[in-house]
């Protein structure tokens, strides 16, 4: 991240009036969002509200078109950056549906990614020993068996294993801004705890997290600083932790009605 030339108090991520479409369909219709280091933001909303789109656009998914607005990341124009540049600059997206890579070993993929990111950050490449040591440390947090690292990326992994593998990748790549797209979905309570603990470990005054989620239950483990409710492509309400709890009690219809009113 560029640092010296930007205001120290400037937010890490500054989204201004962001409009996004896919094909002819408008999905995001004017998003404003400011996230600073040390913060955890939860983005909640019903299915189809645009929350996964927001997460994907931050990581640079190519099929979305930004039709209006801008996104600054550490003061830089994020939208001008390629997906791999964003990753190297410290943005990580944990996928809602992690992709299977046939024949590519999990270990090999992690190593290639870590090398690419470290090279860009001016850090020396890790030796195999150093890499394995780091990997051992990180995989224990998310309880990933070393045997799993020899298998093809996400291939034959259970839903829980895939999500844990996402959190492992996050921990290995050491991003500044982690965007987790429904990392809690489809997990049983034990798997949820493991994943949440992995994310919580990652929390630090120098990093920020955006948690995209349908349900508030993961927020029991990772307490957010801010909660935003996304509906029909707009943030219709923002608040603190209480908003998520209220939402759980009253449902999205309550917001829909109160917004309409």
């Amino acid at each position: 991240m560029a640092e010296s030339d930007t205001d120290k108090n400037a937010p890490l991520l500054d989204v201004r009036d962001l409009h996004v479409s896919v094909g002819e369909t408008d999905i995001l219709k004017g998003i404003d969002l400011t996230v600073s280091v040390g913060e955890v933001h939860a983005i909640m909303g019903p299915n189809g509200s645009g929350k996964s789109t927001l997460a994907s656009v931050l990581a640079g998914r190519p099929e979305f078109t930004v039709t209006h607005g801008k996104v600054l990341y550490g003061g830089q124009n994020l939208l001008a950056m390629l997906p791999e540049e964003r990753a190297r600059e410290g943005i990580f997206l944990a996928f809602q549906y992690p992709v299977e890579l046939a024949g590519v070993r999990t270990w090999q993929f992690l190593r290639a990614s870590v090398d690419a990111v470290r090279r860009h950050r001016g850090l020396k490449e890790l030796s195999i020993r150093e890499f394995d040591k780091l990997l051992d440390e990180k995989r224990e947090v998310v309880k990933i068996d070393p045997e799993m690292l020899k298998r093809s990326v996400n291939e034959g992994f259970s839903g829980g294993e895939k999500k844990r593998n996402e959190v492992l990748q996050m921990a290995m790549l050491d991003p500044t801004l982690a965007v987790l797209d429904e990392t809690d979905s489809g997990l049983d309570i034990d798997a949820l705890k493991i994943v949440a603990e992995g994310v919580d470990r990652f929390r630090s005054p120098s990093k920020a997290i955006i948690l995209v989620t349908h349900y508030q239950r993961i927020l029991n483990y990772i307490s957010p600083d801010r909660v935003h409710v996304l509906m029909d492509g707009r943030i219709v309400r923002s608040g603190d932790r209480e908003l998520a709890l209220e939402l759980e009690k009253k449902g999205y219809d309550w917001i829909r009605e109160s917004v309409a009113a």
Binding site: A59, G60, E84, R86, L93, F95, P98, S113, V117, L173
Partner: peptide
């Protein structure tokens, strides 16, 4: 895209 989002 998945691979690029990991810096490759």
């Amino acid at each position: 895209f998945y691979m690029r989002s990991r810096g490759l």
